[in-house]
Computed example of a mutant assay.
Amino acid sequence: MKKGRKRQENGTIQDGRKKLKTDEEQAYVMIKYPIDDLLVRPNADDPALFKRPPLAIDFRVPRCSVGDLLMVWDFCSSFGRALNLSPFPLTDLENAICHKESNVLLVEIHAAMFHLLMKDEGDYFTILQNKKRKLKVSSVTWAEYLCDFLEMTKNEELSTNIATVRRGYYGLIDTDIKLKILRELVEEAIQTSAIREILSDRVDQKQVLNATKRENTRKDKQEQNPNTEIAMKKEENQTDAVQGGHEGVDELVRGKENDKSNISRSRTEGKRHLVRHLETEIEKLSICSSPLGKDKQYNRYWFSKREGRLFVETADSREWGHYSTKEELDVLMGSLNVKRIRERALKRQLEKFYSKISNALEKRS
């Protein structure tokens, strides 16, 4: 009995040692990259990262509605000429939305959208004709046209506010609902032929500008090689002239070199100016913003040059925040781990547009 018990105990100890060894081997298995950002673990030899700066959340509208606010403002800013709207800052729209009474800016935005839909002669135009409405919206009648639009959307969440609007209490509607109504208007406006033509023209112009930029870059590279060969030949001629004692020829060669050097320098500066001009024009023709990238938590980063802020949107789009200083931008970049795929890509984009973003942030502050 004792021998059997001893064997059993020894067997248990051996089994335990084998299991421990197996666990240790599994623990030291090399991680195969690439892996998701959330699975990356810091190593002792990794450079120290900054702590991510806290986001400012000083929005007047609900944080879940910031995306709608930015969408409406960006559309009005991008297509202001087609809408006959003068430019206005984001804060003006935010204040107007939160105001408990109808105000001039919101009336103008709604009226501009309605007129655009009327000119398109689509569903909204048909509804107005059936109701024998005048095709001109005023500050007095704009609420009627808004009710017609809400009926057309057949969106229960929005249409439940028709009675409130008709009684003249538009300002009492919840802020998030006001923005959802404007978002619906923007989505309808984007489908109009007028906006689609503008988008098409901008795409064509952008392609032409990009092609011009590529052609200039190609020509610049071609010119650099012949210039190198010519410079080498000039150097040989100059050496021969010195060795032969032709001082007058030497001075003449130097004078020509200086003249051509100045011409070459002026051409280079002109090309740089042209490239900067093309880049500016391409930027003006940008149709819509796209995120710079995402961090490890899938938060999206948006930069608005017009507003001078770096906005951050959570993965579920329910919350927003922003950075508004150059110092915050620097700390943010120092907090990104380049071992993570998403954060490395985001950092590259921030580095690429660093001067543009930092200048916009400094102007705002």
Results as ranks from 00 to 15, higher is better:
Met1Glu: 12
Arg5Ala: 14
Arg5Thr: 12
Arg7Tyr: 06
Gln8His: 09
Lys18Gln: 11
Lys21Asn: 07
Tyr28Arg: 11
Tyr28Asp: 10
Ile35Cys: 00
Asp37His: 02
Leu39Asp: 12
Leu39Ala: 13
Arg41Lys: 15
Asn43Tyr: 03
Asn43His: 08
Asp46Gly: 05
Pro47Ala: 05
Ala48Gly: 05
Phe50Asp: 15
Phe50Glu: 13
Arg52Asp: 03
Ile57Thr: 15
Pro62Glu: 11
Arg63Val: 08
Arg63Met: 13
Leu69Arg: 07
Trp73Phe: 07
Trp73Ser: 07
Phe75Glu: 01
Cys76Ile: 05
Ser77Glu: 14
Phe79Tyr: 15
Leu85His: 07
Ser86Val: 10
Pro87Ala: 08
Phe88Lys: 00
Phe88Met: 11
Pro89Met: 14
Leu90Lys: 02
Glu94Val: 02
Glu94Ala: 09
Ala96Met: 08
Ala96Trp: 06
Ala96Tyr: 04
Ile97Leu: 13
Ser102Ile: 03
Val107Thr: 13
Glu108Tyr: 03
Ile109Ser: 09
Ala111Asp: 07
Tyr124Leu: 00
Thr126Phe: 00
Lys132Trp: 00
Lys136Trp: 02
Val137Met: 04
Ser138Arg: 04
Ser139Gly: 11
Val140Leu: 13
Thr141Glu: 05
Ala143Pro: 04
Ala143Asp: 11
Glu144Ile: 10
Asp148Lys: 06
Leu150Gln: 00
Met152Leu: 15
Lys154Asn: 12
Glu157Gln: 10
Ala163Arg: 03
Tyr170Arg: 00
Thr175Phe: 05
Asp176Met: 09
Asp176Leu: 03
Lys180Ala: 14
Arg183Asp: 09
Glu184Thr: 04
Ala189Pro: 01
Arg196Trp: 00
Ser200Asn: 12
Ser200Leu: 11
Arg202Gly: 00
Lys206Ile: 04
Val208Cys: 01
Leu209Asn: 02
Ala211Asp: 11
Ala211Lys: 06
Arg218Gly: 03
Gln224Gly: 01
Asn227Arg: 15
Asn227Thr: 11
Ile230Ser: 12
Lys233Pro: 02
Lys233Gln: 12
Lys234Gly: 11
Lys234Gln: 14
Lys234Pro: 00
Glu236Leu: 13
Gln238Met: 15
Gln243Ala: 13
Gly245Trp: 09
Gly245Glu: 13
His246Leu: 15
Glu247Thr: 12
Leu252Glu: 15
Arg254Leu: 14
Ile263Ser: 14
Ser264Gln: 14
Ser266Asn: 14
Ser266Val: 06
Ser266Cys: 10
Thr268Arg: 10
Glu269Phe: 09
Gly270Ile: 09
Gly270Arg: 07
Val275Thr: 07
Leu278His: 03
Thr280His: 02
Ile282Asp: 00
Ile282Met: 05
Ile287His: 05
Leu292Gly: 06
Asn299Gly: 04
Trp302Asp: 07
Ser304Pro: 02
Arg306Ala: 15
Glu307Ile: 14
Gly308Met: 04
Val312Pro: 01
Glu313Asp: 11
Glu313Gly: 07
Ala315Thr: 01
Asp316Gly: 05
Asp316Ala: 01
Ser317Pro: 05
Ser317His: 10
Gly321Tyr: 06
Gly321Ala: 08
His322Ile: 09
Tyr323Ile: 08
Thr325Ala: 09
Thr325Val: 07
Gly334Phe: 06
Val338Pro: 05
Val338Ser: 13
Val338Lys: 14
Lys339Trp: 07
Lys339Gln: 11
Ile341Asn: 10
Arg342Asn: 15
Ala345Phe: 06
Arg348Glu: 15
Gln349Val: 01
Tyr354Arg: 11
Ser358Phe: 04
Leu361Arg: 02
Glu362Gly: 05
